[in-house]
Design a protein around this nucleic acid. Structure first.
Length: 566
DNA sequence: AGTTTCGGCGCC
DNA sequence: AAAGGGCGCCGAAACT
């Protein structure tokens, strides 16, 4: 029997709290207390705190040294429930949910604010509508009933609980920060880019490469301006459509080598150079603002500093504190393993039931041992590749793993037809996701019935190529959604389990990137953390997908620098 | 002058 | 050889 309490910060800095019964309604009077931290600290027996917004409440609790074991984020649950009900566009605030319940005019959601460098404030406007606790629990009790109305109530409950747990993890990671050595970072920059010149212009190495590009063209060319580069190639008699690297690299021209090198280094300079370091690293920590469930698929995003796009060469700057270690753990072939678990394809489950390299096993069965082809085929199936070798390989994949391919094909068809598509736990893809905004605004009908295959075509196997461009884009989105989103479901359970183990140690979760976690811990705890990650992965697999032979192995490394993990 | 979009590329 | 999912970020270009 879980002991749940609702909590609502009051305008005057105090807090309202009340115990809740199984129906989600209060079982006792609403109490007012003067201090948020004390109200929670004094009730260690509470198993789950129910509140409007984790991003509003939990950073304040953490600031006073109070952690909670579990929570329920009403506005996050509202978002997930609205999505499941096919009402993605409706306002998701607790105030809006209450207004819908009472059949009053529904207020629009407050706008989101972009993160500023170094700020630690919550993502949502601080003046977001506060609801009295009595109103809040009315919304909560209604949400409990709405869980019961979903296709799989127990999975939906797991989803809202898991994402709330993810929000606790995110808040704790935001507070901890990623250990970052500014000195190591400057070392990498100097090694790659050379000296900086006064005035903030290009560093030495970039200036040299720009000169080499210009020399190769026989005139001054700015390699950072695509239009200038296209013009320069045109004058040399080479037509290019863009200056993307894969298009440039195939050209036979002396400017190619310095140009490609320039683009690589330019990227480091502008996105992760000295000014980035100045803006985002304080007191030996990089603090991107992690936001759990920030995308349609449930993947996290970070707000500020490009926290999920740290280039490999820059990872040298992620360095554990003295006497501490980074435990870097990366899930092995997560997406095909998730596909095996959700499709229940016998062949793929058998392959995914081993901890050895899944792509190698797939290639042994369907691609005569060519691992690269097997990987391309699997990723092509998941991403909806429509041309090239991927299509040919997809046919081989379909022969050996028919249920797996049929699963994503069905998702793609549903997406094209504008039907709802869900992850394993019930996160729901908006029916218009993947369509281009321009086409949507132009009022292109969805789906385009005239583009459907002619009738009487025999067994209805899904084939690409008949729907409108927009419908196909929605199909690809939906195809990927069921795999990427179910992987995100699983990852939330993983984080929740790992967080519980780390709570008994000094170890802290400091980074999470889709299928990869970093734990910062004292050296002597590192082996325990490795074990905890393995156990959390298996537990997450069972909790998310039920009884399944599919395994979720991790590659782990105990290192002092992130760069040494691979 | 300020704001939005585009091109390109980093990560998974 | 060529292009298919999810993101964020930057400067330049294109707008208002």
């Amino acid at each position: 029997m879980t002991d749940r309490w609702a909590l609502a910060p009051a305008e005057d800095g105090g807090v309202e709290i009340a115990p809740l019964g199984p129906d989600g309604l209060p079982t006792g009077p609403v109490r007012r207390e003067a201090d948020l931290g004390e109200a929670v600290r004094g009730r260690p027996e509470v198993a789950r705190w129910v509140w409007r917004s984790t991003a509003e409440v939990y950073p304040r609790l953490l600031a006073t040294g109070v952690r909670v074991e579990r929570c329920y984020d009403i506005e996050d649950a509202e978002t997930l429930l609205l999505g499941h009900e096919g009402r993605h566009g409706e306002p998701r605030s607790a105030a809006a949910a209450l207004a819908r319940l009472r059949r009053l005019p529904v207020p629009p959601d407050p706008p989101q604010r972009a993160a500023e460098p170094g700020s630690q404030s919550p993502l949502f406007e601080p003046q977001a509508v506060h609801l009295p606790l009595a109103d809040l629990v009315e919304v909560y009790a209604d949400q409990q009933r709405r869980h019961d109305a979903t296709a799989h109530p127990e999975r939906m409950r797991l989803l809202t609980a898991a994402e709330s747990a993810g929000m606790l993890v995110a808040a704790e990671m935001n507070r901890a920060g990623l250990p970052w050595s500014a000195e190591a970072h400057r070392g990498v920059l100097h090694e790659l880019l050379g000296e900086r010149y006064a005035g903030g212009g290009e560093p030495r190495r970039l200036a040299e490469l720009a000169d080499e590009v210009s020399a190769a063209f026989g005139r001054r060319v700015r390699p950072d301006l695509p239009a200038d580069v296209i013009k320069a190639f045109a004058q040399a008699g080479i037509k290019i459509r863009s200056t993307r690297r894969w298009e440039i690299e195939s050209l036979d021209h002396p400017a190619v080598k310095p140009l490609v090198e320039y683009k690589k280094l330019y990227r480091i300079w502008v996105a992760h150079g000295w000014s980035w370091l100045q803006d985002w690293v304080r007191d030996g920590r990089f603090r991107p603002e992690f936001l759990a469930g920030g995308t349609v698929t449930g993947r996290w995003v970070t707000n500020g500093g490009g926290g999920l796009q740290i280039p490999k060469v820059i990872r040298r700057a992620v360095v554990a504190d003295p006497g501490w270690r980074l435990v870097v753990a990366d899930a092995d072939q997560m997406e095909p393993r998730v596909l095996a678990a959700i499709s229940r394809d016998p062949g793929l489950m058998e392959v995914a039931g081993r901890e050895t390299d899944l792509y190698q096993s797939v290639s042994d069965r369907a691609f005569s041992g060519d691992r690269a082809q097997a990987k391309l085929a699997v990723l092509g199936a998941v991403y909806g590749q429509t041309s090239g070798d991927g299509l040919k390989n997809l046919a081989a994949l379909r022969r050996r793993f028919p249920r797996a391919v049929a699963y994503v094909d069905e998702a793609a068809r549903a997406g094209e037809e504008g039907r709802l598509v869900r992850t394993w736990l019930g996160r729901t893809c908006p029916p218009a996701a993947g369509a281009s905004d321009a086409a949507e605004e132009a009022g292109i009908p969805v789906p385009d019935a005239e583009d459907e295959p002619a009738g009487g075509a025999g067994p209805q196997e899904w084939v690409p190529g008949y729907a409108s461009t927009n419908a196909r884009a929605r199909g690809r989105f939906a195809r990927n959604f069921v795999v990427q989103g179910s992987a995100a479901d699983w990852a939330l359970l993983l984080l929740a389990a790992l967080r519980r183990t780390c709570a008994d140690m000094a170890a802290e979760l400091v980074f999470f990137q889709h299928d990869e976690v970093i734990v910062h811990c004292p050296e002597e705890e590192s082996e325990a953390v490795v074990t905890a990650i393995r156990e959390a992965a298996e537990l997450a697999g069972r909790l998310t997908f039920g009884e399944t032979p599919v395994r979720f192995p991790f590659t782990t490394a105990v290192v002092e620098s992130y760069a040494d993990a691979k």
